[in-house]
């Protein structure tokens, strides 16, 4: 190992503290693989309702990997016409559909070792876990990060400012000036969420959140 002078060492340490380098280490945020996930469903009841489509968009080293983005359309027997106006997915839509189990297996394969990210992702998690349960698949054990929680962290805390209870994906898109194109499609929402997540990282860094454990502490659900 090259012998560095103490000054040089101190400089290096300072630099790594000062810059985002702290987030590049083994506990760092940068190198970690994240997979942004979004589901479109027939309704809001994890037991009764079904996933109609599932979108993922992986993200690592601050980059959204466009080519690894995937969207699966599921063939479902249970179908609730009420949710169609929102998602525009008809049960037999124009997309090629695959059985739920097949989609789940493909999904599980692509999230190996990843932290899952989503907006109000608690709901997506419930839907996914219920689906896995139905097919006798083990629970998904990956950590889930909620971008609403993360966003909330970046807001100013002041008794003078009324804090909103909920921040929707549309709120975040407006805040970060993201195009709402393809909103309410699984992959489209995942894309908006991914961009919002990329915006949040430096904002959180400014609040002292540099490492994965810190990130999980504030954003995990």
């Amino acid at each position: 190992m090259v012998d560095k002078g103490p000054l040089e060492q101190a400089r290096g340490l300072f630099r790594s503290l000062w810059h985002k380098d702290a987030s590049a280490g083994p506990q760092g945020i940068t190198g970690q693989r994240f997979v942004v996930v979004d589901t479109e469903t027939t309704g809001l009841e994890p037991i009764r309702d079904r996933i109609l489509s599932l979108g993922i968009l992986p993200l690592q080293n601050g980059r959204i990997r466009v080519g690894e983005g995937q969207e699966w359309f599921l063939s479902q027997e249970v179908f609730d016409h009420r949710s169609v106006p929102i998602h525009g997915i008809l049960k037999e839509g124009p997309h090629a559909r695959i059985p739920e189990k097949e989609a789940l297996l493909a999904f599980r394969e692509s999230i190996d070792g990843a932290i899952l990210v989503g907006h109000h992702v608690g709901f997506d998690r419930e839907m996914l876990q219920a689906a896995c349960f139905r097919w006798g698949l083990p629970r998904i054990t990956n950590p889930f990060l909620d971008t609403e929680l993360l966003y909330r962290q970046t807001r100013i805390k002041s008794p003078l400012l009324k804090r909103r209870d909920r921040y929707t994906l549309d709120d975040l898109a407006a805040e970060f000036n993201l195009s709402a194109k393809d909103r309410h499609t699984a992959l489209g929402d995942a894309h908006i969420t991914a961009l919002a997540f990329l915006h949040l990282i430096p904002m959180l860094r400014a609040k002292g959140i540099f490492t994965l454990p810190q990130l999980l502490k504030v954003g995990r659900i």
Binding site: G62, I64, V66, L195, P202
Partner: peptide, 11 residues
């Protein structure tokens, strides 16, 4: 080409 593209955000 687009499928092989990455999207980055920088402050």
């Amino acid at each position: 080409l687009s499928e092989q593209t990455d999207i980055l955000y920088r402050e």
